[in-house]
């Protein structure tokens, strides 16, 4: 995060001319921007607002919609219909990448093999990579996502609960991966989910909303509910948690995982193989528990292993990572 500050320090606020600019207008007019969505409210509002601003102020951005087809019958196929309607409504080209094409497995098949525990791990890890690969296919130079303030606060809490120092220090940055080929940006970092849903309601935006049929990850669900409870008692709590996350400073003596690349597919990874490759290898070899917690092959069923590894340093392990990066 410190690096981000340095990078941004050059530009001062247009109004006070003293402090660093918090908002910046896109400078180059040829920037490609892309948005990813499960196309529930947040991503739909993001798509709407970006295309509207682009149109109204002639930013000259080339916008694309990117969506991931996890291959979940009865959940994804319905929501993809909504995305296709969005494609027409906003006049933006849509790209759908599927788990089946990228990995050879649909979530339906994965769940059939591993059951309903840990399935969110697969889905989360695969989605993150699917996004990057989809973005690379479209040759865009920025990826924007609809993560809102509630999501960020939730992620801060989860990273604390997991002791995931590496993610804790970067999960609050608005832009991540600036040294990589496709930086990701979260324009709604400070926007409450409530505001976004209200906006979508009053604008009568067409969005899809259903709980995933493979049940949302319970761990994240608790954090989510806790955040909503806090919000009811004191709405500012959400912004305060984000602030806490931003102000965390990791002691310099803490050993951080080194960011390298996966030997197998070349994706960023702090281990020899990236998480997706490990999980995929497990699936293809019929050892689906490989890569879930501390794996020891066939005999380990269920949570025992996950629990053990959660206490120790488990930098690359994340449950249901659809929201954090």
């Amino acid at each position: 995060m410190a690096e981000n500050h340095k990078k941004a320090a050059g530009r001062l606020c247009y109004l006070c001319n003293q402090r660093r600019a918090a908002l910046k207008r896109p400078k180059t007019l040829e920037q490609f921007v892309i948005m990813f969505g499960l196309f529930v409210a947040d991503s739909t509002v993001l798509a709407y607002v970006l295309s509207e601003l682009n149109r109204r102020h002639n930013y000259g951005l080339d916008l694309f919609l990117l969506s991931v087809d996890e291959g979940i019958t009865g959940y994804r196929d319905d929501s993809l219909e909504t995305v296709k309607r969005n494609e027409i409504q906003y006049g933006l080209p849509l790209k759908i990448v599927s788990y089946k094409d990228l990995y050879g497995w649909t979530m339906d098949e994965i769940v059939k093999m591993i059951g309903l525990k840990n399935n969110c791990t697969f889905c989360g890890v695969f989605r993150r990579q699917a996004l990057d690969r989809g973005a690379a296919l479209l040759k865009v130079d920025k990826l924007v996502t609809g993560h809102n303030a509630d999501d960020i606060a939730e992620t801060v809490l989860l990273n604390i609960l997991r002791g995931d120092i590496a993610r804790l220090s970067r999960c609050t940055s608005i832009t991540t991966g600036e040294d990589g080929p496709i930086p990701r940006c979260k324009p709604f970092k400070y926007t409450y989910e409530k505001e976004i849903v209200m906006y979508a309601y009053f604008k009568r935006l067409d969005y899809f909303s259903t709980e995933c049929i493979y049940s949302p990850n319970a761990y994240r669900g608790f954090a989510r509910e806790f955040i909503k409870d806090l919000e009811r008692m004191r709405p500012r709590a959400i912004l305060d948690i984000i602030k806490s996350g931003e102000d965390f400073r990791i002691s310099t003596s803490t050993k951080m995982p080194e960011q390298g690349t996966c030997e197998r597919c070349g994706y960023i990874s702090s281990q020899k193989w990236c998480k997706a490759c490990v999980l995929l290898e497990g699936l293809n070899k019929g050892l689906p528990k490989l890569g879930i917690g501390r794996s020891r092959g066939l005999d380990n069923n269920h949570w025992k292993d996950v629990k053990q590894s959660n206490g120790t340093k488990n930098i690359e392990g994340k449950q249901c990572g659809s929201l954090d990066f």
């Binding site: 809102n148 909303s209 259903t210 909503k228």
Partner: peptide, 10 residues
């Protein structure tokens, strides 16, 4: 009276 849930994925 309108009820809208915000409790689902991103």
């Amino acid at each position: 009276v309108v009820f809208i849930s915000t409790l689902h994925g991103g």
